[in-house]
Amino acid sequence: MTMPGEQLEEEVGRDELGTGTTGESPVRAAGGSSRLSLVLRRFRGSPQSLVGLVLLLGLFLLAFVGPYLAPYSYLDKDFTAFLEPPSPQHWFGTTPVGQDVFAITLRGMQKSLVVGLLVALISTTVAGIVGAFAGYFLGWTDRGLMWLADLLLVLPAFLIIAIVSPLFRGNTWLLFVVLLAAFLWMVTAKIVRGMTISLKEREYVQAARFMGVSAPKIIFRHILPNLSSLLIVDATINVSAAILAETALSYFGFGVQPPDISLGTLISQGQTSAVTYPWLFFFAVGLLIITVLAVNLVGDGLRDALDPRARSRRAN
């Protein structure tokens, strides 16, 4: 299924090698900027990641610009149309109380997109840094950080958020994002720690150490980039995990509170009528799936672009 894309990518890869022997390469021979441009070029060279990026941008545009184009806002109620199927008037139909499904879906998507992406970003960053530092320094750093991770792992996350969330009521939803992220990083951090311990023994890390490069620099320059495949995959999984966690919490009345809406609250409300009034359910679900798919495509593309070995590995 992905064959044509991969072939194209391979050709691009060969192009890069080709330039090495032509005259133009010495111009951009040294320096970090060339590496960044190389990564960007590889990323652009893969059609699926471009599709993912376009999809993701489109979803953002839809979520944040769409409401200005729609005839109804998410707060309006049309008392002439209850439970109407999609029509030119109400593009996605209406709810039992006359809300415009298009408007509320977009509103929900705004929240879900921001919550999902932010939570994934924060939790993966924390996981990478905590895991790498624990694995690199070992000793007391490791014991302290892993004790914290273990503690968070044994705490019932759902219960804690449920108990704590009333305290945040009325506060900014960013606190909710931080709270979700705080319970998502531990397992990845442990994987990162294990991989760091083995990476640390690799000769290029040793070479850097014997060169006099400081430990934090080694972690950010050699260790984390070499774990980027794992971290990116983890981040893309976390996007969907965060959106789903938020869905679940919202379903029970924690997390996103009415009158605020998220895809999660919409899905939980619509699921009972999925068969009878499909527009209440499937538009929200469809957008959720497209969001997760787009994030995954971008993640795959980024992973291949960052990892110069990806090409040769697949060719084997």
Binding site: E203, Q206, M211, V213, R221, S228, L306, P308, R309
Partner: peptide, 30 residues
């Protein structure tokens, strides 16, 4: 600066994510 090392496995000793220019400039920048 005055004490350097060359390792056995030439593949493992070079960070696969670095270009040759990055590899060679690392000690210089450090």
């Amino acid at each position: 600066r005055d004490l350097q090392v060359v390792f056995q496995d030439p593949m493992a000793a070079l960070d696969p994510r670095f270009t040759v220019a990055d590899i060679l400039s690392e000690p210089l920048r450090t």
